[in-house]
Design a protein around this nucleic acid. Structure first.
Lengths: 150, 150
DNA sequence: GGTTAATAGTTGATTTTGTAACTAACAAGC
DNA sequence: GCTTGTTAGTTACAAAATCAACTATTAACC
């Protein structure tokens, strides 16, 4: 009977289970920043990510964004449509390969991007500020490893 | 013109942006394990989480699960219904406060839980194995801090 | 003790995501 | 050059998440 009870928890602690912890931390880290792009520009997370990538890397195709951001192509397709509707990006058909199209931010899109990047940078600094510089650097390395980005 | 170009990237690197990194890592950590509970038991993430909590902590109310797991009550309500349909849990109305009900795993539910917990534990060990014991411990602390669980 | 507010949980409507099938364009093999 | 296969991106339909409104019960206050 004592055994039945002990089997409940035993060697397993929720607050140490990495997938759970990663999810909780990621959720929380997204939340506050989400309020900004959602509140100011009515943007979804997918849209923010596409805008972000185009702002950071300049002209890209949907496929390239998908690879970098690890987003499915349907998500990207929809985000691109929305961003185009709002005149934040323009598409240009690739004349060498007419299946593909190049995406680039409009001046309006760049303005939005720069605004949000500022917020993002200071938010990142705030999160990093929870740790020493060495710890924060190590954290980034470990997350890159976990994410398979190294 | 050189300035326009430099404004693209400048001081901001995607692979160092914590919300992005956390999301990518969390996504990847969930994915592999999701295959197990989905494949073996046709369970959704929400259902797995509820089952997991009941397995770990024993009898709980939906509200308590919501607080611990940081899940919205509608998600829990639906996950509980599904788990009940599959006879993995039973509900008992609280006679002192008849609005609340106590949820507990059935023997069948406990069997599923124990199976999945084994897989979860070894998966967690595999992830932790990417780092030294000290690093892994530090990672957990940092994630707890980021998640606001400390 | 009767009215009002708060709480546990459910349900329905809307939005967003995921999956599969699709179109259009290109590539390879013969 | 014509079949067959592949790729970029879209669309349609199903599944799931979100948000608001709802029921039933309890607590608070006068």
């Amino acid at each position: 009977m004592t055994n039945d009870e002990s089997e409940k928890n035993d060697d397993f602690f929720l607050q140490d289970f990495l997938p759970f912890l990663l999810n909780q931390a990621a959720e929380r880290a997204s939340l506050e920043f989400q309020g900004v792009y959602k509140g100011r520009y009515g943007m979804l997370r997918t849209e923010w990510r596409v805008l972000f990538h185009l702002g950071l890397f300049g002209e890209m195709t949907a496929k390239e964004i998908g690879e970098r951001a690890r987003m499915h192509k349907t998500k990207i397709s929809r985000a691109v449509s929305k961003l185009e509707q709002r005149r934040y990006l323009k598409r240009t058909r690739d004349e060498a390969d007419r299946r593909a199209e190049w995406l680039a931010l409009t001046p309006a899109g760049q303005t939005v991007y720069r605004d949000l990047r500022k917020v993002a940078a200071s938010y990142d600094a705030k999160l990093s500020g929870l740790f020493s510089a060495q710890e924060a650097a190590l954290l980034r390395h470990m997350l890159q490893r976990l994410a398979g980005l190294d």
